[in-house]
Design a protein around this nucleic acid. Sequence first.
DNA 1: TACAAAAAGGCAACATTGTTGCAAAATGTG
DNA 2: CACATTTTGCAACAATGTTGCCTTTTTGTA
Lengths: 143, 143
Amino acid sequence: MALEIKDILKKNKLSVTGSREKILSLFLNHEGALSHGDIEKKAGEKFDRVTVYRTLQTFLEKGIIHAIPTADNSIRYALCKDDCTEGHHHDHHIHFLCMHCHNTYCLDDIVTPEIKLPDGYVADQIDVLVEGVCKNCKASVTK
Amino acid sequence: MALEIKDILKKNKLSVTGSREKILSLFLNHEGALSHGDIEKKAGEKFDRVTVYRTLQTFLEKGIIHAIPTADNSIRYALCKDDCTEGHHHDHHIHFLCMHCHNTYCLDDIVTPEIKLPDGYVADQIDVLVEGVCKNCKASVTK
DNA sequence: TACAAAAAGGCAACATTGTTGCAAAATGTG
DNA sequence: CACATTTTGCAACAATGTTGCCTTTTTGTA
């Protein structure tokens, strides 16, 4: 695992540092997306707030993670699939926000649908956000 | 126009005040969505920041406006259609963010598509965000 | 391995954004 | 018009993001 993390960093021409390894491992070990706040909390007291901001920014630019829009002023981030490279995302899955556990999941198997736009509009990127109850919570609620 | 604004407020059982009239008129006179910051700027020095927050909150609760998620930490708001009432939105249009003019438009004619979720997931609300170039900007750019 | 250059981290100070409590002012109603 | 209720503005605060600068770490190279 530790090897895998270093490989990801190296593949993206990033120097291997403690904070990058730590933050990347948080993403690898957590199903679902993380907000900046989540990361600060999970990382403990180890890193400066500024370092977290800068690391996330770097990961975003390199295409290691992607940002997921939300309606509550707290952007969340999740790992990209392997075929994302710098400045070239292939982010066509949809995002699912569970109202119960408040996790955000990337549903990689669900592809964003085609959208017919009015004349004159040109689409570049499509984001689909679904809000509801996730698999895990559904199971425990109906129990 | 002034009458219309008061009517909207009264229909929602809100007292008619200067700030509510002003903020509502901003929405009525602006094609596209507004962020909190936009409103503060457009309103000039007239209102306290807190009043803007509280007014937006109230409008949201009453179903006069709806929130549009974004990936840049600045929620935008836009007027709801007439058939939205308190706690009961009919918000099935898609949202278009223009990368050129940075406006957000509600494309009321485009209905959110059906999404087939994996087993166990239950959808409650679907938000579609399309990023690209809008009609107006396309025209001026290709010129 | 040692070293210099480059990159990243930490700190402090600051800017922006959002929240809360309370007193003053405006609103709706009889 | 007077009164109860609602809304506003203010002040203080909390949380979140940003910037510059200096120190530490990392990297590539000899």
